[in-house]
Amino acid sequence: MTDQNFKCGYVAIIGRPNMGKSTLLNHMLGLKLSITSRKPQTTRHQILGVKTVDNGQFIFVDTPGIHSGGNRAINRYMNRAASSVIHDVDVVLFLVQAMKWTDEDELVLKKLEQVDVPVVLLVNKVDKIADKDQLLPFIAEISEKYDFANVMPISATQGHNVQQLEDYLLTKLPEASAYFQDDEFTDRSTRFLVAEIIREKLVRELGNELPYQTTVEIEQYKDEEKITRIHALILVETKGQKVIVIGDKGARLKSIGTKARKDIENLIDRKVFLKLWVKVKSGWSDSEASLRSLGYDAD
C-alpha cells in the first residue's frame, strides 16, 4: 500500500470512565477487541485497534478513563496511560455523555490544552435522550470550552454517526503507507487478549461485588494438536475477595470460566481447556513493582 492518496495515522479515544470508548472502538473495528462493562474503569491499558479500508488505515488507541479520587498505584498508572497518548497521535477523539458534564470531563479538557492536533468532541449516548432538542444548547455550551476541530453527536452502541466519523477522520490523517498488514487488528498478544476476556467475565459476573483489586495473569498457554490449554491466575487482595470470586461450592468461578472459554474459542478459533485459580496477593494494586511484574508498564 504505497498509493500517494493512502492515509494512515493514530487516533486516540479519551474521556472519563464509562463513556463508551471501548464500545466505540469495537464498533469501528467491527469486532470485539476491548472488553466492556457498565462498571467504570473496566479498561486499564492502552489498547491498539487497527482498521484497514481501501484508502486508509486507522490505528485507534483506546485508553483507560481519566479520573480523579483514586490514589492507588493502579489509578495513577491508568491516568498516565490515558494522558500520555494524546501527544503521540494525529487526531484525538474526546467522548462525553450527552446532557452530562462533570468535573472529570473538565479534568480531561485541561489535559487537552497542550495538544496541537485536531480534537473532535463526540457527544455519546444520544440514543438515550428522548428530547433531542435539548442536545443543541448542551453541545453549544461545551463547544465554547475548547476550539474543537469538529463536534459530532454519536451513539457508540447503536452506531449513529459512526460511519460519518470515520469519513471525517480519513480527511485528518496524514498520507502514509500502512503500518500494519491488512489482516492485523491489534498489536496485543493473544495471551493479553485472553487475560482481558477473563477479566471482563469477572467484572460482569460480580458487578458491584467485585473490588478493583482484581487482575488476571496467564500462567500457561499451550497449543496442542486438537486443543489449547490455558491456565490463568485471578489475583485478589484479601481472603474475603477470594471467597466472593470462587462463590458457593465454586459455582461463580465455574460460571466465569465457562463464559470466558466460549469467547476465547471464538477469538482463536479452536477448542480450549481453561483452568482458573484464585490467589491472594495483598497490596498488588498499590505497588508499582507488582504492577510492572503483572505487565502494567507495557503501555
Score class of each variant (00 low, 15 high):
H160N: 06
I35L: 03
K132V: 12
T157G: 01
D183Q: 11
R72D: 09
A73V: 09
V108F: 02
S287D: 01
G240W: 13
D167W: 06
L48S: 08
M1W: 03
N5C: 03
Q163G: 09
A176V: 07
R72L: 13
Y10S: 10
L170F: 03
V89M: 10
T102A: 02
L169Q: 15
K145V: 07
T157K: 15
H45K: 11
P211C: 03
E265L: 05
V123Y: 09
A289R: 15
S84P: 07
R261H: 07
V108G: 00
V117P: 00
R72Y: 03
S189D: 06
R38T: 05
L233P: 05
S282Y: 13
E141W: 02
F6V: 10
P118W: 09
L93C: 11
D62V: 09
T63E: 05
W277P: 08
Y168M: 13
E265F: 02
T42Y: 07
G159V: 07
E175C: 04
S83W: 00
G283A: 01
Q41E: 01
L206P: 09
I256Q: 03
D299V: 11
E205A: 04
T102C: 01
I59Q: 15
V123K: 14
S34V: 05
N124S: 02
Q4H: 11
T190N: 04
A232S: 12
E144C: 04
Q134T: 11
Y146F: 11
S287Y: 07
I74C: 01
D103L: 10
K110H: 09
W284E: 00
R229M: 04
L95E: 14
A298L: 13
D62G: 05
D269L: 13
E184C: 05
V92F: 03
A130T: 15
I13M: 08
E200N: 08
I234M: 11
S287I: 04
S143A: 12
L93A: 10
Y10N: 09
Q114D: 14
F185N: 15
D103Q: 14
D167P: 05
D62H: 08
A232P: 07
A260M: 10
L112K: 13
T238C: 02
D54S: 10
K249V: 07
D263K: 15
K132Y: 06
E200W: 09
L202R: 11
G56Q: 01
A298G: 03
